[in-house]
Design a protein around this nucleic acid. Structure first.
Ligand SMILES: [Mn+2]
Ligand SMILES: [Mn+2]
Ligand SMILES: [Zn+2]
Ligand SMILES: [Zn+2]
Lengths: 146, 146
DNA sequence: CAAGTAGTTTAGAATGATTTTAAAGTGAAA
DNA sequence: TTTCACTTTAAAATCATTCTAAACTACTTG
């Protein structure tokens, strides 16, 4: 288990953005590579389309906001990133694609990761007939004391 | 416990919409009474602002969409209803104000209640310093089989 | 009961996130 | 190379929600 994860990490680190996109079934365009370089560096982050466009700009590149949205949708549908269930008016994405959970500071919108094994989710209810469990998300809403 | 709930139910059923609004600290306007009559009947439902406006219309009344939003915000802030954390582009509200959870059919957006005791949430992670747990929401995403 | 006032409603305008349009550009297969 | 489906883009459109500012109304006080 330890060794598997080790090789997986190394393998993932060694893959170029182009290879990661190809492996995900996406044509590696210039724009997708720019985004892959920013997002697929192994660091977990939560971000919006606008956050990402800002990062693209500060990396010396630029991209239409429509393209940012197009790419985020493609990346999400391929499982390269995921979208977090939050009732904020702006979509929030996450580079941590494993099943995990969040603290949500409802005042600021800030999200903090909770790893899957930090929550006991053994007794789940029976899944409705004809459906299957496609992911569980636990959200713990935080409020400031006093 | 049984008897307490029994009296609570009866009491709640006997209260008029006007009394419920007063008790919640809201001035009972004509518009809020129309909404209270629809929402506070003890039946659990999930709905959007537009859903509610449709119900208002079919009850023979009518109301500006701005007022629907104003009232929903007031009702939510008073704890008469709550808003569900969902990444849909339209806000979803819930008349079930107890802590509970949901199945989400991501294709249709349909939500199904999961009562709090149907999920084992004993081992929660430590809440960050200076904050307190202001509610836990578990979302189980459903996908259709085949 | 008035009259006064803070809180509420409303139509319509504004805002902000996201999607669509349609035309120009590009990656990859042959 | 040629070809074509896929992609990018600026600009317009869409859609949910909020704002504005003027008219209204529920309660308080006299
Ligand atoms: Mn929204
Ligand atoms: Mn949302
Ligand atoms: Zn996360
Ligand atoms: Zn519910």
């Amino acid at each position: 288990m330890f060794i598997e994860n080790y090789y997986q990490l190394v393998y993932k680190d060694i893959m170029t953005s182009k290879e990661k996109l190809r492996k995900a079934g996406l044509r590696p365009t210039k724009q997708r590579m720019i985004i892959a370089n920013i997002l697929l560096d192994g660091i977990n982050r939560h971000f919006t389309a606008e956050n990402l466009q800002d990062e693209i700009n500060s990396s010396g590149n630029s991209m239409s906001i429509a393209t940012v949205y197009n790419c985020l949708k493609k990346f999400r549908n391929c499982g390269l990133i995921k979208q977090i269930e939050t009732s904020k008016d702006t979509a929030v994405f996450d580079t941590n694609t494993h099943q995990h959970h969040h603290f949500l500071n409802e005042e600021t919108g800030e999200l903090i990761d909770i790893e899957d094994d930090e929550i006991n989710l053994k007794s789940l209810p029976k899944i409705p007939q004809g459906y299957f469990n496609n992911g569980v998300e636990v959200l713990i809403k935080l409020k400031k004391q006093d």
